[in-house]
Design a protein around this nucleic acid. Structure first.
Lengths: 214, 214, 214, 214
DNA sequence: CATGAATGAGGCTTCATTCAT
DNA sequence: CATGAATGAAGCCTCATTCAT
């Protein structure tokens, strides 16, 4: 929790960044404030000029991550009406967010358990809102007869899990471009949603040329 | 870590079970041996009649989980030839394993980072072998023209992530039966793999009746 | 291990002093940090604001003891040329150092085995340098025909052992003055070195008056 | 303490031998019963079929070492009348005992502090008896005008310390024979005692040929 | 704001010792 | 006699947190 009325904005930013990285590496319980302070060029005691407590820091981090994700969703996905284009935008956003902000997202998924009950509920409420957003798209598409799936809720879980998984293995410095990464997942998701349209056909054949990596 | 056939066998089993549960709740760094011992009805120091160290315990647990998963794969999936039936069996196994042994699997995915480099490599080698098994099925199906997917490797990652995610939300005491859970994922996966057959149509319509939870 | 000139300096000095005493009493393995801390008026954990580890503390102590001894040797003994006067000065220094700093010297001789191999080598190198200094005096005296001894190396070992032994039984509050203690050992050492001069005769008779304690 | 009425004499001997070695290496506080048991091919708990306690074992060891030394003194030294020959015999015995039974003697000197007060007194009484024996020889020689020394008590301390020191550096597999080692120390001791006789002259010159190791 | 030092709680681990089998 | 397992006490060390300077 950023303390109110502090100057030293740069120190706070350094703390934020270093904390995300260290938590991603060691987990919340496994990282320690001394190392965090060292990475920021200060001593452990000085951290308390910027944070309330170790757990407060975690809550702040998780909150802002979820808030950012939700805001981007509102800006880029919620404004679209067509289910197919909307799911495409959602896939794009989710993958971009989960690759560009890999470490932040990892702790967002893993470290919830270290929050106090109150904080836990606050953060999971945001997460649920995001998941619900995605489910709505799928339900709407199914209602309009564009998607053909057995269960909107389970399908949304499966899609979110699949897309989130990308953050665990994708590295932007590899041979696979982010653009291509997104294309592939758009197709996979649309296929999973039972969409069979001319575009998919075209993309499918073009795609096949790059396939069979294994 | 422990010789079999002795009287302390029951203690060791209790340790194993309690450790899995506690690690799943608090994470490896967050759980402590005192509580583990208390759950087994012994004192903390006595744990060391059964384990080498806290980390050694983690390694033992993760190793046996992965070994079990691989063994079941060999018995139930590897023996099938037809890609569609094989992927069905793989989905079934993965979901059953990840729901029946929920907590064990969660720590298998989350706590790898707490292992020493040597142990880490040993365990990830097993995990890679499993992932590779799945990828082979998909590649084979693509080569035979049964599956139509952009990239076997990425597709396998996506499918594994989607199926693994089930363990995070599914509860066997809910209204959704395990049988139904598997059916739904079989369909989702087959659709994602670009399989279009008459069975899917039928299942799809039947399925729609149970769907739309949201 | 600790930067000088800070306020905690007094704590560090207290730790040093108490550690020497406790190690002399119980041995390095036998003393514990809780008691050390208690003697310094702090809690055990606070020790780690001043030391790296229990063993690091031992190394620091032994190092500074040997460094002091070597420095005093350089100042008081190395600057003399005449072998007889030099060996007299060496006896005087050794006894003064081993009685004034009794406890420190005891741990210096006894607790080497508790050091890590690296630290062990560092400290024994200093000790060897000191022993070598003494041997050089004896060799020089023998070469100049002043000392008559069978083997310079063994003789130096014997003399060092004899003088070091003083620290084990001498108490400065007894009836034997430090001045007299040194005189006696000067004579014993010179006799052992085969020096026969008129002074010894004189001292010998004077000495006899105080002797025969047993 | 060897438990009464036990068979398994060989196990007890193995314990004794291994204990001496381990204590010499790690000190009494630093060695542990598990390792001791392992060296004897048994488990830690089984040690208690042979000993009363860790400290009881130490007492037994120290006691028997001192008893052996005293017995040998009575047999080999006490029976001589002439002070010079007697001191020669004492030097020989002390060096032989302290080289042949190096490790035992080291723990005899170092680990006394780990005994309970009662045991401590029992063992130091034996040690004092031995030291007193030596002092008597020196006093007698001084009284007879054969030795010329400032103080019999201090001289005996110095000689004992010098001879005991041999155990710390002498290795029987080196180039220095035990016979020669004894000769050198006989000369050193006799010189220190102020003995100037024809024998010393002869030995001295012969000895000079081997000297100047450094 | 930063620091050095202290705290107190707790964590992992070791170890002498006991005892039923 | 030997063993495996348990105990309880203790040991070293870490760490979030506080506070005077």
């Amino acid at each position: 929790m950023r303390k109110a009325g502090t100057r030293g904005e740069t120190t706070w930013l350094a703390i934020r960044e270093a904390a995300v990285e260290l938590i991603a590496i060691h987990g919340f319980e496994g990282f320690n404030l001394r190392e965090l302070a060292a990475r920021c060029g200060i001593k452990a005691g000085s951290l308390y000029n910027h944070i309330d407590s170790k757990e407060g820091l975690l809550k702040t981090l998780l909150e802002s991550i979820m808030a950012d994700l939700l805001r981007e969703f509102d800006e880029q996905v919620a404004v679209i009406d067509d289910p197919i284009e909307q799911i495409r935008a959602a896939v794009r956003l989710h993958i971009l967010f989960h690759t560009r902000r890999r470490t932040e997202v990892i702790i967002g998924n893993t470290e919830l358990r270290s929050l106090s009950p109150a904080s836990y509920q606050a953060i999971t409420a945001l997460r649920d809102r995001y998941e619900n957003n995605l489910r709505q798209i799928i339900s709407k598409g199914a209602a309009r007869g564009v998607f053909h799936i057995p269960d909107a809720k389970i399908t949304s879980f499966a899609i979110i899990a699949a897309l989130t998984g990308v953050g665990h293995w994708y590295r932007s410095n590899g041979s696979l471009s982010q653009k291509r990464l997104i294309e592939i997942h758009e197709q996979l998701v649309l296929q999973a949603l039972g969409v069979v349209d001319e575009t998919a056909e075209a993309t499918g054949s073009e795609v096949t040329r790059h396939a069979a990596t294994s």
